[in-house]
Design a protein around this nucleic acid. Structure first.
Lengths: 340, 340
DNA sequence: ATGAAAGCGCTAACAC
DNA sequence: GTGTTAGCGCTTTCAT
């Protein structure tokens, strides 16, 4: 199979005895070009197997039709949902996605952003690493008016649109639900509260408690990295407590599930001894027995929203700057783990 | 914040009173350039906020440092593992990943491949859609000697390296294990057997049976799309059977789990009434009770292997053509669901 | 309705 | 060790 030479608009021009300019215009369906000429151009292009060279186009137009995506980790169910939503919109709109993960490291996030920058992405979709406290490392993009949309793990910033759920409301609803079901001493497993999304959930948790005249107890708010292991650790801590909580609200399903399982192994009954509500609606939450009540976190919708907002902005259909945040609907899913 | 003009090597050249060529060489650390000059160039570049224009480079070099990835679906645990492995290697080696999903549709797979083609990816990493029976739609790549590596969902092809596990062996080991534990009437839930990976597993299943002098029974091999729903359907079918199987080997964990759960709800005991082995080692398999025995499917390692093979080929360190397939180690993980 | 010419930013051959 | 020159493939003035 011989390596074929790449066909260019000049090849088409030569064969048709017209100029490259005309070919270029014809290919782009510029209406100033005669219908007939256009048709001929398209036909020959197809016949010769012409494919336009994106790099020449990019070089000229200074636009790449590429969107950069940076996520904390690729190997999570939530991320895969988000990417799926983004990919659908991007493909539909003729954009490519280039994707990288920060592995929850600020340093890697910076490195990724540099790569994205020198790849001249048209826009950026970012979910911040857990280490990230500000977004000054994205300033080069902002300086060049390259739009950035933050999603899920966001930081409030004048320049960037943020897309997330109402974490306060979610935390409030989860806690309120447990209270309604008669649970009173509710332990909360949180991620790093320096992170806006976790601090909001804590606020919601406290608000719900206050409505039942319960003073939040600092010892009942445990900060963890929300892994399976930390779920087990929390369970072990609970087992050692003199006055055990009667419910747990965890900011993550995996953590909740392994906590539950460890407690059950120790002989406790869920939800009778301890009720549980998780967060994310991971597929695991429907598998564990009893099924875990949780907050549905709309990953796919979030991916779609982020991508279409960005593309609309790029196409000047809308302007990110006029909106500062978009709140997606999340909802409490009540299952057996919180029904005494 | 004013939109800054893009800095080019000419700007650097002018300020340093040297030629653009020297700047280019200096930036690329070409040793023919004086150490001192190089240092000056790098310093000024940094100071001016210079970023090289990939498109000019690509246009010249006809190489994009971009790898295209096409997967059947983005929103799966396995895929997310694979991508994570690929991303790590690619970033390390200075390659970008552009990612798209076929949604198990041949037509979308073709469309994706065209986009990748016109994006001039340096190479392609593909896991085929369930509809795909041959890879002729990738011929344009092969004609241009753009390397393609197939992974997971592969088809045997002269031109492409395939990376997968030994599906025959995995099917054999899963079945053999059940037989060893005393199960004799083993139902197998398979994906579409036109697909090589599933047909191999079936062969392994049959081989194990034959070693125990058990004739495979066509009614005990059920072809499904391997979703949660099909797991439930299979369970319902089993409940209606006169002579029920005493074990199930499912080619997918989710399917196995929902089958198990449905049977348990109907009062059957796992593994005493029916033993179970799944496939993939999904996180769910460690959550369900009893824990599901399964085949560990090394997604992360597969992603790494595929990416590094491709990059080595691109860097002429190795040649894909000399290898035709790479088999990754998979292993049986024995848990409670198959221990009578 | 079409074309000529210039240039996007970079690198590689060839010179010195 | 460094510079000159040409050209990658395309689009976009400005002409006609």
């Amino acid at each position: 199979m011989p390596q074929e030479k790449e066909i260019t608009i000049y090849d088409i021009a030569k064969q048709l005895n017209i100029s490259a300019t005309t070919v270029s215009r014809g290919l782009n369906n510029n209406p100033t070009i005669n219908r007939n000429t256009r048709k001929k151009i398209h036909e020959l292009a197809k016949q010769l197997g012409f494919r336009s060279n994106r790099f020449a186009i990019n070089l000229r137009k200074k636009q790449t039709n590429t969107i950069g995506v940076i996520v904390p980790r690729l190997n999570s169910y939530f991320t895969s949902q988000v990417l799926s939503g983004m990919e659908n919109i991007a493909t539909l709109e003729g954009y490519n996605l280039i994707i990288s993960q920060s592995s929850e490291s600020l340093q890697k996030e910076k490195a990724n952003s540099e790569t994205m920058f020198s790849s001249h992405v048209d826009g950026l979709l970012v979910s911040l690493s857990s280490e990230t406290q500000n977004i000054r490392h994205f300033d080069p993009f902002l300086k060049k008016k390259i739009p950035i949309i933050l999603f899920d793990r966001i930081i409030s910033d004048e320049q960037c649109l943020g897309i997330s759920i109402d974490n306060f409301k979610a935390g409030y609803e989860a806690t309120k639900h447990l209270l309604k079901k008669g649970f009173r001493k509710i332990l909360h497993i949180s991620g790093n509260p320096l992170n806006f999304m976790y601090s909001e959930r804590i606020k919601g948790y406290k608000q719900a408690l206050s409505e039942y005249n319960i003073m939040p107890d600092a010892k009942l708010i445990i900060t963890k990295i929300l892994s399976e292991e930390s779920g087990i650790e929390v369970a072990e801590a609970i087992l050692k407590m003199k006055h055990r909580p009667d419910a747990v609200f965890s900011s993550n399903d995996a953590c909740a599930i392994y906590c539950m399982k460890t407690l059950m192994q120790a002989g406790l009954s869920i939800p009778n001894d301890i009720g549980f509500v998780g967060f994310n609606n991971d597929p695991m939450s429907k598998v564990v027995e009893p099924n875990l009540s949780t907050i549905n976190y709309p990953g796919y919708a979030m991916g779609e929203a982020a991508a279409s907002q960005l593309i609309n902005h790029l196409n000047k259909i809308s302007d990110i700057k006029t909106t500062n945040s978009i709140i997606l609907r999340s909802e409490l899913i009540i299952r057996a783990s919180s029904l005494k």
